[in-house]
Design a protein around this nucleic acid. Structure first.
Lengths: 188, 188
DNA sequence: TTGACAAGAGAATGATCGTTCTCATATCCT
DNA sequence: AGGATATGAGAACGATCATTCTCTTGTCAA
């Protein structure tokens, strides 16, 4: 297996396993078994589980943001408002089989597995999301209040969490109504 | 030590340790050391760590809801709107030293430590919170839309999560502005 | 006092885990 | 070809953990 293929295989295995079972629910030999990369090579690539977790979070940030941006654009090009399209994207996600909430929020909750490096990646992910939401809002709602993107980010994280807890999209629908109302009463 | 005192001591230790370090970050002998209750008695009270976790979650639900209701009432009696007072209560909480987000959201993220019994307690906690928010909203905003309490619960959970991630109350302030705006444009 | 049982201290047990090591097998440079 | 190096398979190591067991010390009813 080429170094690149091994790298990819490990990150794919890490994503599937860490997301599904949590960090402390996955042992290094699970990663070996799922990726087909031997212990020796695994530890050659990442000198510790903690560094593998950091690489996973970084990779997941890129992947998730790209998916989210693309999904939103798809709904926008179908005629949706850019802000409300974020709810269409999240709706797709939370109804995906195997959905288990936000990997970053979940990881941060596993205190004993997380160090400052990880928290930094997690905070950067959420900062990038707020940034992206601000750009979406600016497109069609230039007069929205300055607090709007941060509030939208709060609402989206709340939706992600509550759809997990209740195993339902009801929280998403309520949140969408609220944001619809905010848009109607604040912007252009 | 009386049975009652032992019970209380164990639950207090469980709350401090599980909340601060997560479930898998606490070992049974930590509970023994913090509570002063011997292994033997501990396992006499709770036949497994999992059942101790369930007892902790149940106890925390009671404690937290009582604290939240009291804090909201205190702000209401100081003249605040019952709905906006929920943000004052949450603001108190997130600025408490040792704040680490919502114990229920955090626990659910520790997949490998959680079984269906625990998830049921967690979902019931959030359901009770929505219920309580609905009663608060009904008091001063009888004409609020039916989605309002669920949306408020989503926003509050988003605030709880993001204030943890960003170690800041900025998300709370943005969310408060959003809810203020919603109240102004939907109710009486 | 005595005997029966509750409780404490903490060692033992068996499992799991992160990490490293051994030995055998390619692979590559010359 | 031949020797250095990389890699795989998987056992070994040392730590940690949930849970149980032993041995000892109250404690209380008669």
């Amino acid at each position: 297996m080429s170094p690149d293929a091994a790298q990819r295989s490990v990150l794919r295995a890490a994503d599937e396993l860490f997301y599904a079972h949590g960090i402390s629910g996955v042992v290094m030999s699970d990663i070996r078994d799922a990726s087909g990369v031997s212990m020796r090579r695994l530890y050659g690539m990442y000198p510790s589980k903690s560094e593998l977790v950091a690489a996973w979070l970084t990779d997941r940030h890129d992947t998730w943001m790209a998916w989210f941006a693309a999904s939103v654009e798809r709904h926008v090009s179908g005629g949706a408002d850019p802000v409300l399209a974020t709810f269409d994207a999240i709706a797709e996600w939370v109804t995906t089989p195997g959905y288990r909430g936000c990997a970053f929020i979940n990881s941060l909750a596993e205190t004993s597995e997380i160090d400052e490096t990880h928290s930094t990646i997690i905070a950067a992910h959420k900062r990038d999301l707020v940034e992206h939401l601000a750009q979406l809002a600016a497109r069609d709602h230039p007069n929205a209040p300055s607090w709007f993107p941060a509030a939208l980010a709060v609402i989206i994280d709340g939706v992600i969490v509550q759809c997990t807890i209740f195993a339902s999209t009801d929280p998403l629908d309520a949140a969408r109504s609220a944001v619809h109302q905010l848009l109607e009463t604040t912007s252009t």
